[in-house]
């Protein structure tokens, strides 16, 4: 469909498109310069090194698990925040901005301190400087963000749809699952993509809680950090490119799968 307004190419349209192009070129230039610095041969050998393969695998697993755990909590929490009225709701809503705005390092520090308390101490051996710590750190960074995205998605869906579903025989849960969730599909895909890519790139909280141990808690961002520390700048740059490549591939996959996701 071609809207009439599109035909008159105003200076504003030009400005808007030029901004988009500039932004796109900005990031492409960044990636390209890293690529030229590393060179294809070095990139290939890095990609096949045991350390990087380990990092890729660890990153994929932790980001996926953190995203799954995050959605399991964020989707119902966002639904409750959108649909139910309770005392202190406004406060909860505002407080959820905090983990989004806090530096991940601060979140990681808080987690580390929590595991030093008598209550947290019970679990500390499982999380501190361990792989589950990575997942928990990523979860801490992405869960509030995913909740916010899902809340505004549910806010945009008239609850009357669920009311009708109820009169047709749905329980509250069925109305959520068969109507609200399929209608929230677009927001859900966005939430998955943003959470996952954010978890993949998570560094600050991960380092605080799980540490940066080579071949143990070495996710791709940690690999970048470790290679920088040993002044292996080429290898570090290769890790940057690989991180970008893995992220891009996954995002394309998420959107492809999301499109094919059938209506419930």
């Amino acid at each position: 469909m071609r809207l009439n307004g599109n035909r008159s190419f105003s200076s504003f349209s030009f400005l808007a498109l030029a901004s988009l192009l500039a932004l796109f070129l900005f990031f492409v230039t960044l990636l390209l310069s890293v690529f030229l610095y590393v060179g294809p041969r070095e990139l290939a050998s890095s990609l096949l090194s045991e350390e990087i393969l380990f990092s890729i695998r660890l990153s994929l697993i932790t980001a996926t698990m953190a995203t799954a755990a995050c959605l399991l909590v964020a989707v119902p929490a966002a639904y409750a925040l959108s649909r139910f009225n309770f005392r202190g709701k406004g406060l909860v809503d505002v407080l959820l901005y905090l983990p989004i705005g806090m530096p991940p390092v601060a979140l990681g520090a808080a987690l580390l301190i929590f595991f030093g308390t008598p209550m947290g101490g019970i679990f500390s051996a499982r999380f501190v400087f361990e792989v589950p710590g990575i997942i928990l750190a990523q979860f801490a960074v992405i869960s509030a963000l995913a909740t916010k995205i899902m809340k505004s998605t549910f806010d945009g869906i008239d609850p009357e749809y669920e009311s009708v579903a109820r009169t047709l025989g749905c329980s509250r849960f069925q109305a959520f699952y068969k109507v609200a969730l399929p209608l929230a599909k677009g927001g859900l895909i966005t939430a998955v993509a943003i959470s996952w890519i954010r978890a993949l790139g998570e560094f600050g909280a991960t380092v605080m809680l799980a540490g940066a141990t080579r071949m143990k808690t070495e996710t791709l961002p940690v690999a970048i950090f470790l290679n920088l520390e040993t002044a292996d700048v080429v290898k570090m740059s290769a890790a940057v490119l690989i991180l970008a490549g893995v992220g891009l591939t996954a995002l394309i996959l998420i959107h492809k799968l999301g499109k094919r996701w059938p209506a419930v």
Partner: peptide, 27 residues
């Protein structure tokens, strides 16, 4: 509502947009 067996047609229909006509009817 799910135990009242009442047919409700709201003011702006609220047909489920993710379903076809017959899927709406058989919902």
């Amino acid at each position: 509502p799910e135990r009242r067996n009442i047919g409700y047609v709201p003011q702006d229909y609220r047909l489920f947009p993710h379903l076809t006509v017959s899927e709406n009817i058989s919902f």
